[in-house]
């Protein structure tokens, strides 16, 4: 992949995770056109903006799910946009966790198995993985629910299971895309409290995509995405 954007002077290596001047189109639709973003270790940053502005695309590029058409992404001092697919999958498994809006639990697996899944995929012994999963379920107030399938959980419970699964590998970064999108206010508040408390306790940085101010209220700061670009009042970090 050729890259014409200049290497940013301040050095993206100074931050944990960086998008620099990223472009991404889907056919005729331009989703990102020059988006830049940086987050430091342990930070919780909300990515806000109207629907269709490119928030999820930015998250997918930062997480190595999508490859930018142009521009760079960095993680822990390394370019990630240039990695081969296999290496990016490996990076995602080892260093990143994910919580999405819904439909993310494997319906055939129990809550416990769902939480343990990332450890199992990373080659942990099943007994140890399930033990760790039970500890997470307890921490998230779900003790006794380990055997339930996702169809037997409320929306808030399912989202807490997803949170346990996102954090069980002790990721450096948790990517959360509208994590309370399908929940009512009170349940959403509980999930956000657990999400930010757990991430902060683990030193995990959180990239939190949301269009809801009250969800963004749990972050340390916010950036706005508009028409595929990031604008922020925190100019220092926005332009690496």
């Amino acid at each position: 992949m050729t890259d014409h954007s200049p290497t940013p002077p301040a050095g993206p290596a100074a931050h944990l995770l960086v998008a620099h001047d990223v472009y991404k189109s889907f056919g005729p639709t331009t989703a990102l056109c020059g988006a830049s973003f940086a987050i430091d270790a342990g930070e919780v940053v909300a990515i806000m903006g109207p629907s269709g502005s490119g928030k999820s695309t930015l998250l997918h590029c930062l997480a190595g799910i999508l490859r930018p058409d142009r521009g760079q992404t960095w993680f822990a001092g390394q370019r990630t946009d240039e990695l081969r697919d296999g290496a990016r999958t490996e990076l995602r498994r080892r260093a990143f966790g994910f919580v999405f809006q819904f439909g993310q639990l494997v319906p055939e697996l129990s809550a416990e198995e769902n939480v343990a899944l990332p450890l199992l995929l990373n080659g942990s012994k099943p007994a140890a993985a399930l033990q760790a999963a039970r500890e997470w379920l307890q921490r998230l107030g779900l003790e006794g629910m380990g055997q339930r399938r996702s169809g037997e959980l409320s929306g808030g419970q399912a989202q807490r299971v997803a949170l346990g699964r996102g954090l069980i590998t002790k990721p450096r970064v948790l990517f959360a895309d509208e994590p309370t999108g399908s929940l009512d206010s009170l349940t959403g508040e509980h999930v956000m409290q657990l999400l930010t408390d757990s991430a902060r306790a683990e030193g995990t940085a959180v990239v939190l995509v949301t269009h809801e101010p009250r969800v963004a209220g749990y972050a340390d700061r916010e950036v706005m995405v508009r028409d595929g670009r990031v604008s922020s009042t925190d100019l220092e970090l926005a332009t690496p």
Partner: peptide
């Protein structure tokens, strides 16, 4: 509006933190 939004969001963060 950008400045106002960021002031409002700051207030939301403070209120959210205060609720803890």
């Amino acid at each position: 509006l950008d400045l106002q939004r960021s002031a409002h969001l700051k207030r939301i963060r403070e209120l959210t933190a205060g609720k803890r």
